[in-house]
Simulated assay, not measured.
Amino acid sequence: MVEKIRIEEMIVVEGKNDTLTLKRWFDCDTIETNGSAIPEVILERIALALERRGVIVFTDPDFPGEKVRKVIDQEVPGCAHAFLPKADATDHKKRKVGIEHAGFAALKAALNAARSSTMELPADFDPVPFSRLMEAGLIAGADAKKRREQVGELLGIGYNNSKQLVKRLEQFRISVEEFEVAMKQLEKEQNE
């Protein structure tokens, strides 16, 4: 029997199938939100877990998953977030998207890349200028949506619309240097 990888932080997932999938490969504890209408008692449990062990929010890469993530980020700031690319979480036969459809390698990569989010910007933080996002073709243009999706995956911050991208780059303290490395990687992949 292969020894499971231990995850110290509590992992917040949407449901039972997500928990079962994670426990198949990881020695971990989860908190299930059971949907996007998160009860106060669950938010309190997440806050306690954050205080005692740390929390990784790991929701499905879809609209309901993003809604859960936003509620938790607003109500319990400071949690780490893991993002799974939609391609790695899709069951093409059933046409469903969710953590429960992802394989070990994708889950491990997403959990390893989890990043903390915070709303307060440190005085010395230098955000990626909006003009650079425009120049990179991430705000407008025919391929902007696809490019944002690819950059989000490279940076480990998930898919974002134009407005979310600006916010997430700041929330997850993506430096100009990190952004430029991701853009070079994106250009390299597109030229291959």
Results as ranks from 00 to 15, higher is better:
residue 169 L to C: 05
residue 81 H to M: 10
residue 88 D to A: 15
residue 73 D to L: 08
residue 144 A to Y: 02
residue 161 N to I: 11
residue 170 E to H: 13
residue 4 K to A: 07
residue 27 D to S: 07
residue 43 L to Q: 15
residue 168 R to P: 00
residue 149 E to M: 14
residue 83 F to H: 11
residue 180 E to W: 04
residue 19 T to Q: 15
residue 74 Q to H: 13
residue 15 G to D: 02
residue 14 E to F: 08
residue 153 E to F: 01
residue 180 E to S: 06
residue 79 C to M: 11
residue 39 P to L: 04
residue 33 T to I: 10
residue 85 P to A: 07
residue 129 P to M: 13
residue 154 L to A: 02
residue 29 D to N: 09
residue 65 G to K: 03
residue 34 N to S: 11
residue 11 I to K: 05
residue 90 T to K: 12
residue 186 L to V: 00
residue 45 R to P: 01
residue 62 D to M: 12
residue 61 P to E: 11
residue 24 R to I: 07
residue 30 T to V: 12
residue 95 R to C: 15
residue 105 A to Y: 13
residue 77 P to Y: 14
residue 96 K to P: 01
residue 52 R to H: 09
residue 4 K to T: 07
residue 75 E to Y: 12
residue 173 R to N: 08
residue 38 I to K: 06
residue 156 G to S: 03
residue 140 A to D: 05
residue 164 Q to L: 10
residue 106 A to G: 02
residue 57 V to I: 15
residue 23 K to Y: 05
residue 161 N to H: 09
residue 113 A to P: 02
residue 69 R to W: 10
residue 7 I to T: 10
residue 179 F to S: 01
residue 4 K to V: 10
residue 27 D to C: 06
residue 31 I to Q: 03
residue 147 R to F: 00
residue 136 A to H: 00
residue 98 G to L: 13
residue 126 D to K: 08
residue 48 L to N: 13
residue 162 S to I: 04
residue 85 P to S: 08
residue 144 A to W: 02
residue 51 E to K: 11
residue 10 M to V: 10
residue 162 S to K: 07
residue 83 F to A: 15
residue 106 A to D: 04
residue 119 M to W: 08
residue 92 H to E: 14
residue 118 T to S: 11
residue 109 A to H: 05
residue 157 I to L: 06
residue 165 L to G: 00
residue 7 I to M: 14
residue 96 K to G: 04
residue 100 E to A: 02
residue 48 L to W: 14
residue 136 A to T: 00
residue 91 D to L: 15
residue 141 G to K: 01
residue 170 E to M: 12
residue 155 L to E: 01
residue 179 F to I: 04
residue 159 Y to C: 06
residue 161 N to A: 14
residue 78 G to T: 07
residue 168 R to L: 06
residue 160 N to L: 05
residue 88 D to K: 12
residue 124 D to I: 14
residue 172 F to H: 09
residue 23 K to A: 04
residue 32 E to G: 01
residue 41 V to F: 07
residue 65 G to V: 05
residue 26 F to S: 10
residue 144 A to C: 07
residue 89 A to M: 07
residue 139 I to D: 00
residue 76 V to C: 14
residue 57 V to A: 07
residue 4 K to N: 08
residue 1 M to K: 11
residue 172 F to A: 04
residue 78 G to W: 11
residue 161 N to Y: 09
residue 184 K to N: 06
residue 175 S to K: 08
residue 154 L to E: 03
residue 68 V to Y: 02
residue 187 E to A: 00
residue 163 K to S: 15
residue 175 S to R: 13
residue 101 H to D: 03
residue 67 K to N: 04
residue 38 I to S: 06
residue 132 R to A: 04
residue 176 V to N: 07
residue 138 L to A: 02
residue 163 K to H: 08
residue 69 R to L: 12
residue 94 K to M: 15
residue 8 E to F: 11
residue 62 D to R: 14
residue 138 L to C: 02
residue 17 N to Y: 07
residue 19 T to V: 10
residue 165 L to Q: 03
residue 6 R to Q: 07
residue 177 E to W: 14
residue 96 K to N: 08
residue 22 L to R: 03
residue 34 N to D: 08
residue 159 Y to W: 13
residue 86 K to Y: 09
residue 109 A to W: 09
residue 130 F to G: 04
residue 22 L to F: 06
residue 177 E to H: 15
residue 2 V to F: 13
residue 91 D to V: 13
residue 45 R to A: 13
residue 173 R to A: 09
residue 142 A to W: 00
residue 137 G to L: 02
residue 42 I to A: 15
residue 85 P to I: 09
residue 64 P to M: 10
residue 33 T to P: 01
residue 127 P to W: 14
residue 158 G to T: 09
